[in-house]
Lab assay of single mutants.
Amino acid sequence: DIIVVALYDYEAIHHEDLSFQKGDQMVVLEESGEWWKARSLATRKEGYIPSNYVARVDS
């Protein structure tokens, strides 16, 4: 799995977006363009995230 960590807070604009806080970790489910589908490890919610707001966690 690709794990990313939030670099900034993000408040969902559309209902399919995923809100998150700086430091939150998410599993990337699908990478396509600038918006990635991800699942929050904390809340288990899924939605689209702006890929420029996150960084990959080296395992």
Rank of each mutant, 00 (worst) to 15 (best):
A38F: 01
W36N: 03
L18N: 01
A38Y: 01
A6T: 02
E30N: 11
V54A: 03
V27M: 11
I2V: 13
I13E: 11
G33C: 09
H14N: 11
G33Q: 05
S59P: 13
H15A: 15
R39T: 05
Y8Q: 10
S32T: 12
S40C: 11
W35M: 10
V54D: 00
M26A: 01
Y53V: 05
Y8W: 11
I2L: 12
W36Q: 04
I3R: 07
G23R: 02
T43G: 06
S51E: 04
G23D: 06
D17Y: 14
W36D: 02
R56N: 07
V28Q: 01
H14I: 05
V28W: 02
R56T: 08
A55I: 13
E11T: 13
L18W: 01
L41C: 14
K37L: 15
D58T: 12
A6N: 00
S59N: 14
L7W: 03
V28L: 13
L41I: 11
Q21K: 15
L29V: 08
T43F: 03
S32F: 13
V5A: 05
E30A: 09
V57R: 06
P50Y: 07
E11F: 11
H14M: 07
A12T: 04
S59E: 13
D9W: 03
Y53L: 14
Y10D: 00
H14Y: 10
I2H: 12
E31S: 15
S59V: 13
D17C: 14
Y48Q: 06
W35P: 07
D58P: 11
T43R: 03
V27R: 07
G23P: 00
E34V: 12
A55P: 02
S19Y: 04
V4F: 09
L29R: 04
V54Q: 01
Q21G: 07
E30T: 10
H15Y: 12
L18P: 01
S51Q: 09
I3Y: 10
A12V: 02
T43V: 03
S40F: 06
A42T: 12
D24K: 01
I2M: 13
K45Y: 07
D17F: 15
E31K: 13
R56H: 10
R44I: 07
M26Y: 02
A38T: 04
D9R: 04
G33T: 06
Y8M: 11
V4T: 02
N52S: 15
V57Y: 10
I2E: 07
M26S: 00
R56W: 09
H15L: 14
H15P: 15
Y53H: 10
